[in-house]
């Protein structure tokens, strides 16, 4: 975890896709300049459509350890397939078949095999690519087609968070495992939503996740207009800061449709994102809020969240 202000990790997330998460992450990175922008939406990486750059080095191949069976030692006892919770191994006619695409890489089969017939070998799940785009370094993970194991790739992307200097993470949409893998160990979460009933419903789901993770967060309302105040009312009642409101401007939608960054196509929006960055920094310097993220409690040393209520526990 970063201490002090030498590094800040901001994640941009939303309860569902299409709310403008990538827009906020990419524009924030552009106005900030010297920053690493990490696309953790490894199933559908879209950041590169808006900020493209020169590839830096070869793509890094990310693998998972999967079982390989030595048939000369295997006696078909099925201990491995009985153990596997993910049905990645099956035994038929005393022969073991490995279905590597189902494997989570837990290593249990190799341990339970009484014959020592299973060894673990790396299997490619995707790549991590790094691009330089002006001052912004873009890092994106890309899951291979037909692979369903996003979390290991998200972790590989996050390994590129620099030791010093700020990082902005574009999270996958939703509230499932890959989202949690992205948000863990970040300093601040920006939740992007729309001022509609759908937007509010999905925002509430996302709020549940960040609250469960114990992370400080704020909301950006995208496509804001004056006709619906449900999102703002909810945020006020739940004491959630609204960091920015991006107006419902058809020109923004048009620029987006062409793959142009808002702050490039419509420079009048630059101050909005500059202010957003400043506000996040200010919020993080607020000891009350920062305390949520990096209490001196030893249970945060590993960066993993404690169960709910643990902050009040006697060990703190």
């Amino acid at each position: 975890m970063g201490t002090g202000r030498n590094r800040m990790i901001i994640a941009v997330a939303s309860g569902k896709g299409g709310t403008g998460k990538t827009t906020v992450a990419a524009n924030l990175a552009r106005v900030r300049g010297d920053v690493t922008l990490l696309d953790c939406d490894v199933e559908e990486p879209n950041v590169h459509l808006f900020i493209s750059g020169e590839p830096q080095g070869e793509p890094e191949v990310v693998s998972l350890l999967v079982p390989e069976v030595d048939e000369s030692r295997c006696d078909g006892c099925a201990a491995c397939s009985n153990f596997c919770a993910f049905k990645a191994l099956a035994v038929l006619d005393k022969r073991v078949l490995v279905f590597a695409e189902m494997c989570h890489g837990c290593g249990g089969c190799a341990r339970v095999c009484p014959q020592g017939a299973i060894r673990e070998v790396p299997k490619r799940v995707g790549v991590v690519e790094t691009m330089g785009a002006g001052g912004v370094t873009v890092v994106q993970g890309r899951l291979d087609v037909g692979v369903a194991m996003a979390p290991p790739l998200v972790r590989a992307v996050k390994a590129h968070i620099p030791k010093t200097g700020d990082a902005i993470l574009d999270a996958p949409p939703g509230t499932s495992c890959p989202v949690v893998a992205t948000l863990r160990e970040t300093d601040f979460v920006v939740l992007v939503t729309e001022p509609t009933p759908f937007g509010l419903n999905d925002l509430k789901l996302a709020v549940e996740v960040v609250r469960e993770l114990g992370l400080p967060f704020g909301v950006v309302v995208n496509r804001a207009d004056s006709s619906d105040d449900r999102v703002t009312t909810y945020c006020r009642e739940a004491s959630i800061p609204i960091l920015a409101e991006i107006p419902d401007d058809r020109r923004v939608a048009e620029a987006y449709s062409r793959g142009e960054l808002m702050v490039d196509a419509l420079p009048e929006y630059r101050p909005l994102f500059e202010q957003l960055y400043t506000d996040i920094v200010r919020l993080l310097q607020n000891p009350l809020i920062a305390g949520v993220a990096r209490a001196s409690c030893p249970c945060f040393m590993g960066g993993t969240p404690m169960p709910r209520g643990a902050l009040q526990g006697p060990h703190c």
């Binding site: 993910f86 049905k87 099956a90 038929l92 006619d93 078949l97 279905f99 189902m102």
Partner: peptide, 13 residues
């Protein structure tokens, strides 16, 4: 959840 084809093949066999 997953592996329906594998189990079905075992049933058929």
């Amino acid at each position: 959840a997953q592996g329906a084809g594998i189990q079905a093949a075992q049933n058929v066999a």
